[in-house]
Design a protein around this nucleic acid. Structure first.
Lengths: 108, 108
DNA sequence: ATAATCTACAACCTTGTGGTTGTAGATGAG
DNA sequence: CTCATCTACAACCACAAGGTTGTAGATTAT
């Protein structure tokens, strides 16, 4: 699921199909890559349950899985906090008064 | 620089050498990988200027580059905001009232 | 001098990712 | 039926990243 949203193209696809159904080929036209590539992206999103396909004639209409995407965004928010904590950790260390010998040669 | 901090091991190395000098071999002992692997990580950090090496006898003492790491954390905070915006974007879409099937008309 | 240690670096391996091409099955249009 | 379109999937390619092994140069210890 995280992996599914790790790719920019897939994120873009998700935001688009959240707003309306699109056939795979219609989606494919939006990106500078082959149909097969987009089809694989969709497959990954579908496998992560972030997207659902509905058959309509010979087309496969893709739509965003609202609940799953909502869960995903929540999870991402969590991870964001963890990441924030990491940054804060480095900040703390930098703020500590006892830095052994931070002599990086900037001779004046 | 971002790439340098993209790896967990490297981040760990940074936090450690921010708190005191460590020889490359001393660092290497901390991780379940070969000396060469750690040495490469250190080289990457050094190349990104996040870390500085100081020769002491036959050892190479590594210490964190305070200013650079501070800059990096600031940058990461920025990116975090961008990422947050992305999540918010999806959230907005989810919040929109009209999730029906807006037609994807291709005016030919 | 010899051995042991620390470091640097090159070559190679493996894995994972995104992409392309090619093929085949379904389905609707003429 | 025949053709064009949409889809699925397998095979293959290119590339990057993290790791390992092996080798060589420095430096300290015996």
């Amino acid at each position: 699921m995280l992996h599914a949203l790790a790719d920019p193209t897939r994120r873009d696809i998700v935001t688009h199909v959240l707003q309306g159904e699109h056939s795979v080929s219609a989606l494919a036209r939006r990106y500078p890559m082959s149909f097969a590539a987009v089809q694989k992206h969709v497959a990954i999103l579908e496998r992560a349950d972030l997207v659902t396909k509905r058959r309509h004639g010979r087309e496969q209409l893709v739509s965003g899985n609202i609940a799953a995407v909502r869960d995903a965004t929540a999870l991402l928010a969590q991870l964001e906090e963890i990441w924030r904590a990491r940054i804060a950790r480095m900040g703390e260390i930098l703020a500590e008064p006892n830095h052994p010998e931070p002599n990086q040669g900037e001779p004046t």
